[in-house]
Amino acid sequence: MASRRRMLLKVIILGDSGVGKTSLMNQYVNKKFSNQYKATIGADFLTKEVQIDDRLFTLQIWDTAGQERFQSLGVAFYRGADCCVLVYDVNVMKSFDNLNNWREEFLVQASPSDPENFPFIVLGNKIDIDGGNSRVVSEKKVKAWCASKGNIPYFETSAKEGFNVEAAFQCIAKNALKNEPEEDIYLPDTIDVAGRATQQQSSGCEC
């Protein structure tokens, strides 16, 4: 049972609207990229098989809406995440400044048992734009922030060119695996469940 559960690794991608969350996921899973901006509605995931130390895992990658108005149902899907990926656009300072909010929001909403050691990963995306000339967030600045938050691993990526995407997700998968399973141990009150089960089935209509 434990092995089956550990075969699935749940990863949540967060970040401001337009930083390239969907593109990173599409590049990693489908090796595809589109320059067009398309907003994400709600939460959406894709899966991909990964091999870590000769073992196969399924990575469940949740792409989220960066625009708050497309997150109407809340963030119940954060629950049980094994790793949280924080994405910003190296060409937009605000998207970096907001990483803190995203991180805090995640910790509050997902309430992992050990928030200090919960695995985060930071991706600075769109390094390809204008040959890096329009970049406004320096590597030093990001690394300082990552260090201050418990040495979060940092990758610079280009979803467009596929640069560093594979490496970043390898790291994401490894860190997700390191995360201690969160699943609360459930112990039933009584071993006999037949009573309850029949009760359940007898009540109510067909829908």
Partner: peptide, 11 residues
Amino acid sequence: QLRDLIGKNLH
């Protein structure tokens, strides 16, 4: 609250 379920189809 439910709207994104419908909108997701468009996504």
